[in-house]
Design a protein around this nucleic acid. Sequence first.
DNA 1: CTAATATACTAAAACGATTTAGTTATACAA
DNA 2: TTGTATAACTAAATCGTTTTAGTATATTAG
Lengths: 342, 342
Amino acid sequence: MIKKSKKYTLKKIAEKLNISVTTVSFVLNGQAKEKKISDEMIAKVLAYVKEIDYQPNQLAKSLRTGKSKIIVFMVEDISNQFFASIARIIEDLAYKKGYKVIFCSNENNDEKARDLINIFKHRQIDGYIIIPSPGIENDIRSLIEEGIPVVLFDRYFPSLDTNYVVIDNEHASYQGTKHLIENGYKKIGFITIDTQQNQMVNRMRGYQIAVEEKDLNSNILRIAFHENGQDQKKLKIKKFLEANDLDAILFSTNYLTQSGLEVLHESFPELLGKLGILTFDDHEFFKIHTPSISAISQPKKEIAVNLMNVMLQLLKKPAKDSEPKNITLNTEFIPRVSSQHR
Amino acid sequence: MIKKSKKYTLKKIAEKLNISVTTVSFVLNGQAKEKKISDEMIAKVLAYVKEIDYQPNQLAKSLRTGKSKIIVFMVEDISNQFFASIARIIEDLAYKKGYKVIFCSNENNDEKARDLINIFKHRQIDGYIIIPSPGIENDIRSLIEEGIPVVLFDRYFPSLDTNYVVIDNEHASYQGTKHLIENGYKKIGFITIDTQQNQMVNRMRGYQIAVEEKDLNSNILRIAFHENGQDQKKLKIKKFLEANDLDAILFSTNYLTQSGLEVLHESFPELLGKLGILTFDDHEFFKIHTPSISAISQPKKEIAVNLMNVMLQLLKKPAKDSEPKNITLNTEFIPRVSSQHR
DNA sequence: CTAATATACTAAAACGATTTAGTTATACAA
DNA sequence: TTGTATAACTAAATCGTTTTAGTATATTAG
């Protein structure tokens, strides 16, 4: 049971033991030896502190030290399975090291992202793990210049020398497209988000290189991230499918795959058996979808672990000391043969 | 662009304007009129504060006022689609009111939940929105006794008079089971989590009442929440399906449905077309699954809005003032007819 | 025996806000 | 003229820590 903690403070402890606040503080912060506190004194303090289960006020601590033991984890949308899974792992890793995590969603929107950063700047946040929206390069830059630990992921700014953890998008996409081609598909469509952000640009490039290599046509549909509602997105996909007689599709992200599948089920059920479907970001349900859907799976665990490793290192040393860490991880290609294709 | 904020403080502002810190503070907190600050003074302060884009240090503020403007949102597992979606809505609502949200996962584990609460107790968290693990009734009670705003959801403790937001589990389950029966299914299985927590108990009761009403047998599989890994769960389901010649299944929660579907695909593909499948918690993918899966859908938006409403009210008034709010929302039954069933 | 050093501890400033209990100057009443 | 209100502002305490710059006593060196 949680104790009805009577709000102990250093001062009360000091009074009770008839010693100074300073001594208590030194003992509690492991500086006792260094500050020449006697062994009996150390024992006395530790015993009492244990007895009353004293927990220091973190706010006061933060105010004084400037460290909050909180890190921010900012993604496009925390309700997206992919981000939520990584968040869950980050949460665990952080808690083990005594950090709390504040999650937030920027909707890939610069203003929202800026607002959020601004809010957090006045809360002494210790570090930021961020999926940057397209136009906040300068904001990220100024965070870094102020010496605040920042790690980007999923995408980064080539012109900004930062810490980041990403995957090899181009290769993943190239490899996936090639796999489709090798399985006999010739008219392969690529459905992606209309953006200049490098993760998407690279995914597209991988696709393009693969199709051009085999002298195939590229068929690309770009959809705005903030397309007017889900229905507009689906309408665009529908028209794209009607206009192009495709035999396979590569979706550049999981939420597009979801919309795409819905369109197929609603409007082109006859295509479902024939179409080769490949998606970025695996999901449990792709495995049991009919037909099952091949996926380019991002290593969530590895991403999270790397993010936290870099972050923890930054939190130890002033950021400027070391070269920014640029980590590129490999994806896993998960081919799935649908029962219909057998 | 975010300004390279030169860490202004009340003191610096006061010095610059040649007035006292107190005056600045009064003006900024809207107490100017009440404290008889002259209009020119108010204008002067506001102008300067605007010019330098002053943002008060929230830690100092919190230390002094005891309020952190942070609320905790604790669920079983933040990577679960259902919880993540609610978290996303909560996030937005909270930010609009100037609150940040710290998400965390207790894994339905008392010790983890207690640890988390303990950590947060020393951070002056303003309020808690919690899915309680089975044995933390007393911990919740002591939080409440200390006057800290707490709202439970998804489940509650009948013997504890708290604020909570839940759904009418029994009715939802009853109605869903009845629907299966009316569609001709006679051997209906119920796969649930082995727990005494009331959300699950009620879901089971709804099922039982419905089958007994029609003199049908009940076939129940209980799986431990912390079953040894995903594979053990699936194995139990597999054995259950082998042992019982069912024609329909009701899953009491989304992650069980997922495991169940995997088992069906892997081991009993021939059943997929015949079996009636109904699940608690809707998911985009249930719509496009083959066969499509009927769902008892919880009103995520409504749940989130109600949670925040209650929380915001509690944050305004000392908790003890008013009677705890007990809110029970209705689910939506979404019947889906699979193409095979046509 | 004195000076220097080490040991064991502490007073008080600081972090940056809020808030209580003033102070001064002016206005008005008796 | 004195006393009381009121307007307009402020000094200083406070929240609970950390940390700097001590102090007092004991020990050692010369």
